[in-house]
Design a protein around this nucleic acid. Structure first.
Lengths: 337, 337
DNA sequence: TTTATTTACGTAAACGTTTGCAGCAAATCG
DNA sequence: CGATTTGCTGCAAACGTTTACGTAAATAAA
């Protein structure tokens, strides 16, 4: 079975490779008659251009990379959905890389991508990442990058986020209005700007309503869910006065449910719970969970669109293109007064 | 800023491109001293080989494609997780494509991939796919393919599935033992072999326990969840005798919960429900949902491993390499007697 | 010494595509 | 009618890497 490429098509058509190539790219310097012949044979032979030869020659891969902590998470799954949609429409391919929130892995992935495998990068940084040297290098490699959700403030590029400060404020206020007096905040590693914003919203809402912030009510989660359950259990036992919980990430809200069930704390009678979550089944939980839900699909799509515009123009992405989308608060029974 | 490639390194080191290339690939025909010099400079200049040039020359892309219906679904998200892990360990990259269960899109994606962008393909076919010509073409393009979960029986290659027949049987039997007399089966498009197996398990379990199969109790879901809710509502109203529901896909179980809540049917008192699901929060639903849970991560990882072995040997994948993994049944309150 | 063999490197040809340049007709213009 | 333009096509050089082949020197075998 002989390979079907420009050369084989050219030979069969008795013309040069150049003409075949131009005909297929619909160049204006090829006669309509020739184009017809070329296209007919290409279709008959099921010709598919070699993506790598083209990429090498044009120095364009028509591919974007997506680097995220995990995929088994509704937020990221939905974001990928949006990213894939935008990429597909623009004729781009999507490479997926998972960091599992591991800094070393993130560095290794980014390093590899400097080889020109992707034209641009979408990224949600790992929670353990503190040093951003590996990301700076991308600028030099001329690979534009757009951060989404878990952004990196130190890098000068576009970012797509949600109104995290306001959401943190609203969630906390929602609990206060529901009658909570001692509200705990569960979050993960606080070196993420996103966590800081939510935390600040939480603190400001407390202050605004005359509640004194209490460091003992702030719990930092870890990667492992088992450990989180233990941490939350310990917190609830140590501070029996806690009557409200604001979870900055879905996993911690779920773990809270498990602990409450285990300790016999009733939701919402004893403790009210609200959490960031994209869980479709939130309304079917026992009790239905009040959530702040981020527009994950839109975040992914918007980030991809911004990136693709930059890629097409071969320009770096500008911070000015940053976008802030709004999350929605769904009050359900877990915070019923 | 000059590009850093083999040529620039060679010039700076006063040696030929070939030697630099060989040194970096740790060839035995380069002296240790030279290797040291080359490696040192490569590191200093942050050299990253151009993936496309290498791919073009070696006719190997070190990339696999994953074609799935959707990603916002715990099963597929977990599968991707397993796939990415296996790929990363083997030094492969992962391209993601979503069909959204659309046949046209699936064909278009597969067609594109014949251009050599990927060394192999992992696939879960779209529920609307009936014709498999586009997949046969892959054989000719010498691209091995491994199906997982939603396999295509007509194509002669390796498949990674779960024991769907047994699971369907067990789920049905579980409902029967819990006292159900009129058990409905909710599934999607039945041209998928996977749906047929589960359905057969359901039917055989009914027969084995002296229940007569009733076509009026089998409901075929569609893409849209709103429509599914309507269909299920109609079914429950039309057949008030239904006291058990076996949902072949997670979405249909969730929709069932919504309908029951709406119609005031109590689970499990009035209707017992069991469904295929990888939802982590299944135990936290109201009531906790009994599930058949597939080892999604392992399915993805196993499929990727089989594919990568074939890719490395540049051989087609053999049907004999097929693997069947076992799902687990978790009995929870939704089927309590 | 001569003749193999090994070691270490360079030369150059691929891989398939794109594209600047040139050529060469036919058409248009002065 | 000669000069210039226009429309179409081919030639050949890239893109960066890998690798078969050649070669010169150094070592080993004779």
């Amino acid at each position: 079975m002989t390979p079907v490429n420009l050369k084989s098509l050219a030979k069969e058509l008795n013309m040069s490779i150049a003409t075949v190539s131009r005909a297929l790219r619909d160049s204006h310097e090829v006669s309509e008659a020739t184009k017809q012949r070329v296209r007919a044979l290409a279709a008959a032979r099921h010709y598919e251009p070699n993506a790598y030869a083209s990429s090498l020659r044009r120095n364009i891969s028509k591919t974007i990379g997506v680097v995220i902590p995990k995929v088994a998470n509704h937020f990221f799954a939905l974001a990928i959905n949006g990213i894939e949609e935008a990429a597909r429409q623009a004729g781009y391919h999507v490479l997926i890389y998972l960091t599992h929130d591991d800094y070393e892995r993130e560095v290794s992935i980014v390093q590899h991508l400097k080889g020109g495998r992707v034209d641009g990068l979408l990224m949600s940084v790992a929670s353990s990442t503190q040093d951003f040297a590996h990301l700076r290098g991308l600028k030099e490699a001329n690979i534009p990058i757009v951060f989404f959700d878990r952004v990196c403030a130190e890098i000068n590029t576009a970012k797509v986020t949600t109104n995290d400060y306001e959401s943190g404020y609203q969630a906390t206020e929602h609990l206060i209005r529901a009658g909570c007096r001692h509200i705990a905040h569960l979050l993960i590693s606080n070196n993420l700007s996103i966590g800081q914003f939510r935390q600040q919203g939480y603190l400001d809402a407390l202050m605004a309503h005359g509640h004194a912030p209490d460091p003992g009510l702030i719990l930092h989660g870890v990667m492992d869910n088992e450990q989180n359950v233990a941490l939350i259990r310990e917190l609830l036992l140590r501070r029996p006065d806690i009557d409200g919980i604001f979870a900055s990430v879905e996993r911690l809200a779920i773990s809270t449910y498990h602990v409450c069930k285990e300790l016999g704390r009733r939701i919402p009678e004893d403790i009210k719970v609200i959490g960031f979550s994209n869980l479709e089944a939130a309304a079917l939980l026992d009790p239905p969970l009040s959530t702040i839900t981020q527009p994950a699909y839109d975040i992914g799509r918007e980030a991809a669109k911004i990136l693709l515009r930059a890629v097409e123009k071969k320009k770096a992405v500008l911070p000015g293109q940053s976008v802030v989308l709004e999350s929605a608060l769904f009050a359900r029974r877990s915070t019923a007064g």
